[in-house]
């Protein structure tokens, strides 16, 4: 029975993914190109990022359903005005798609490999995703601060690479230094349940339930007295604590 589910899930998902991408991406590029003739670059970028978020949401929420279910929980009682620095644990390649749950205009801080994915890598580059491995910190922080000033939130995975085994790795401090510089609220995001969706080094999706928890924002006035090292560990401990609760709940 489990094998049958596995075959159904992967067949439906990958066929839908390829067909949808082949149709939607050219349409999407055409729409954005036409739009750029009539409206400001800022508005085009906003629409562009919104479209990427929708694309991600369809891929991660619709195509694997009902074999994979996403449960999103926002701990913030009422929606706050952005921008934010979203800081997330990193277990799987699906994390990037799961960020479509976040209802803000965002760019992601990514490693080299997402830029190498055919077509999607080009879209990521065009939408202003930040390649942390190719930028010295000064350039990275300058670009990040510019985006925040424009009202664009930034999503970072400070472990730097997918942990794969569920154990959270040490955090890199760059995004926390940006927080201290920009005075932007930091929002911890916890993802649990997608260690095998897909497992590191594999494309095989396994049925399961993925939980995404958006924790309350840590305001600048709450963390301004901390140095980058202490701040990154504070946020890491918050995420680790929530993950323990999420995993205990099953």
């Amino acid at each position: 029975m489990y094998e049958l589910k596995l075959v159904c899930l992967n067949t439906i998902f990958y066929l839908s993914f390829i067909a949808f991408s082949m149709i939607s991406i050219p349409l999407f590029v055409l729409f954005i190109t036409s739009l750029s003739l009539f409206v400001s670059k800022r508005l085009v970028m906003k629409k562009f990022r919104r479209a990427i978020s929708w694309y991600g949401a369809i891929i991660i929420r619709l195509f694997p359903f009902p074999f994979i279910r996403i449960l999103f929980k926002d701990y913030e009682k009422k929606p706050l005005k952005g921008p934010f620095l979203f800081v997330c644990n990193h277990r799987s390649a699906s994390d990037a798609f799961l960020m479509s749950c976040i209802p803000y205009e965002c760019v992601q801080v990514v490693n080299i490999w997402p830029f190498r994915i055919p077509v999607l890598g080009i879209l990521a580059r065009l939408s202003g995703y930040l390649n942390i491995n190719k930028m010295p910190f000064e350039k990275f922080s300058q670009r990040a601060c510019e985006l925040l000033k424009q009202g664009v939130s930034i999503i970072a995975f400070p472990e730097g690479t997918r942990s794969g085994n569920g154990n959270m790795g040490p955090f890199h401090g760059s995004i926390f230094r940006v927080g201290l510089m920009s005075r932007c609220p930091i929002v911890p995001i916890c993802i649990s349940g997608n260690e095998k969706i897909p497992r590191r080094g594999s494309l095989l999706l396994r049925p399961g339930k993925i939980k995404v928890h958006k924790l309350p924002a840590l305001q600048w006035k709450e963390y301004k007295y901390l140095n980058p090292f202490t701040l990154k560990n504070k946020v890491r401990n918050i995420i680790a604590g929530e993950l323990t609760v999420m995993e205990a709940q099953g």
Partner: peptide, 24 residues
């Protein structure tokens, strides 16, 4: 870095065990 005294042992890897990065 507010690292506890007990962790400060000579064999500790400053990156993996103590969690420092290149900017730290």
């Amino acid at each position: 870095f507010e690292i506890e005294k007990e962790k400060l042992q000579p064999q500790m890897n400053i990156f993996e065990d103590l969690g420092l990065d290149s900017l730290d």
